[in-house]
C-alpha cells in the first residue's frame, strides 16, 4: 500500500507540474504577443488546459470524496464559461477592428456575418 500511495503522489505531482508549466507559458505568451487575438489564444489555453491539469492533480491528491466533486464542478464551470468568453471577445474584435487584414487572414464568410450584424443593428 505504501507503494500505491507513492504512485498516487507521483501522478498528482506530475499533473500539477504540467499545469504550472502551462500557466508559465500562458503568462509568457500574453506578454510576448502583440495582437489581441494571439494573446487571447494564450489566455484561453491557461484557462482550459492549465486549470484542467492542475485541478486534476489536486483531485488525485484528494481521493474520492465531496471535495473532488466540488473541484470537478469548478473545472466544468471554467470549461463552459472560458471558451464562450473568448469567443465573444474575438467576435467583438472581428466586428470592430477596421484594420483586421493587417494582422490576420480574413475568410470570405466573415463579410456575410458582418452584413448580418449590420442588418440586426438596423432593425
Amino acid at each position: 500500500m505504501e507503494i500505491l500511495e507513492w504512485v498516487r503522489f507521483m501522478i498528482g505531482a506530475i499533473f500539477i507540474l504540467i499545469g504550472l508549466c502551462i500557466f508559465i507559458i500562458e503568462v509568457f505568451g500574453i506578454f510576448r504577443f502583440d495582437y489581441v487575438l494571439n494573446r487571447m489564444h494564450m489566455a484561453a489555453m491557461g484557462d482550459t488546459l492549465g486549470i484542467g491539469c492542475s485541478l486534476l492533480g489536486l483531485m488525485i491528491f484528494c481521493g474520492l470524496n465531496f471535495e473532488t466533486f466540488k473541484i470537478i464542478m469548478i473545472v466544468m464551470f471554467f470549461w463552459i464559461a472560458s471558451p464562450v468568453c473568448s469567443h465573444m471577445l474575438s467576435k467583438l474584435e472581428v466586428t470592430t477592428n477596421e484594420n483586421l487584414t493587417e494582422h490576420c487572414e480574413r475568410r470570405d464568410d466573415l463579410a456575410e456575418l458582418e452584413r448580418e450584424l449590420e442588418e440586426e443593428a438596423k432593425c
Binding site: A81, H87, A121, K122
Partner: peptide, 24 residues
C-alpha cells in the same frame, strides 16, 4: 442603435452557455 451597432447580439453560443449557467 448606432451606438451598439458593433455589439454582437443574439449569439447562439453565448445563449446556449447562458441557458446552462444562469440557473446554476
Amino acid at each position: 442603435a448606432n451606438d451598439r451597432a458593433f455589439e454582437p447580439k443574439n449569439d447562439t453560443i453565448l445563449q446556449v452557455c447562458a441557458t446552462i449557467l444562469v440557473p446554476i
